[in-house]
Design a protein around this nucleic acid. Structure first.
Lengths: 112, 112
DNA sequence: CGGTATCCTCGCCGATACTG
DNA sequence: CAGTATCGGCGAGGATACCG
């Protein structure tokens, strides 16, 4: 019998790892949840709701999420300027999966 | 109209964040995938299949996964000693969700 | 209001050597 | 074989000040 290599598919191209590259950071899931719950949200309002995040970090995470198409940034030419962030369709498709992950954790914790 | 606070549920007790505490590190999902694909696996065999992980890091991740009940460690009193790692039931319940996350990524990537 | 610029810290990750 | 001990770097995360 020839020794087969059951190498983990989670190497360079693993879609699971790639997913985590997109939503893995410390705040990204929280941003997604907040935008999903509250709809389009202005920058400072988002920051208030996320209690504890700094400007540097929140702005960076938002830019990254926007650059990969998970969050949409809309700038309204008012004075003072108004900027609203919201989830994209690609992001919305992710929500049910995150919900299941939450449910899994609740069940996991209940049995411990 | 009273201003309601749609504060993100993803604060201290958010099950989503707690899930990530369990499986978030750099290698943990890969360990889970490998054990799920290959069944009970010995330490060095696991290390080989995970191509690139060091002893320090793999052993640490395995201990953490074991301590939270996602991975089981079985030590057989042979000479030389044989140790096999496998997924627990709680971990198995997670697999379908991770599969969905992978599928989401494939769809996401296809549309970009 | 909605950020950027700058600097810093801390802990994850890892290489290497060693051991029961 | 299956790890632990030790040390180090490096980058995500963050505090603070400032800007268009």
């Amino acid at each position: 019998m020839i020794e087969t290599h059951y190498n983990c598919p989670c190497l360079e191209t693993c879609p699971l790892s790639r997913s985590m590259d997109l939503i893995g950071g410390k705040w990204k899931m929280q941003i997604i949840c907040t935008l999903n719950n509250g709809g389009p949200t202005r920058y400072n309002e988002l920051k208030r709701r996320m209690d504890g995040v700094s400007n540097t970090v929140l702005a960076r995470a938002l830019r990254e999420l926007e650059s990969v198409g998970l969050v949409e940034r809309r700038e309204y030419m008012e004075v003072p300027v108004r900027v609203e962030y919201s989830t994209t369709e690609a992001c919305d498709a992710l929500i049910p999966i995150l919900d299941q992950l939450s449910e899994w954790y609740e069940a996991y914790e209940a049995e411990r």
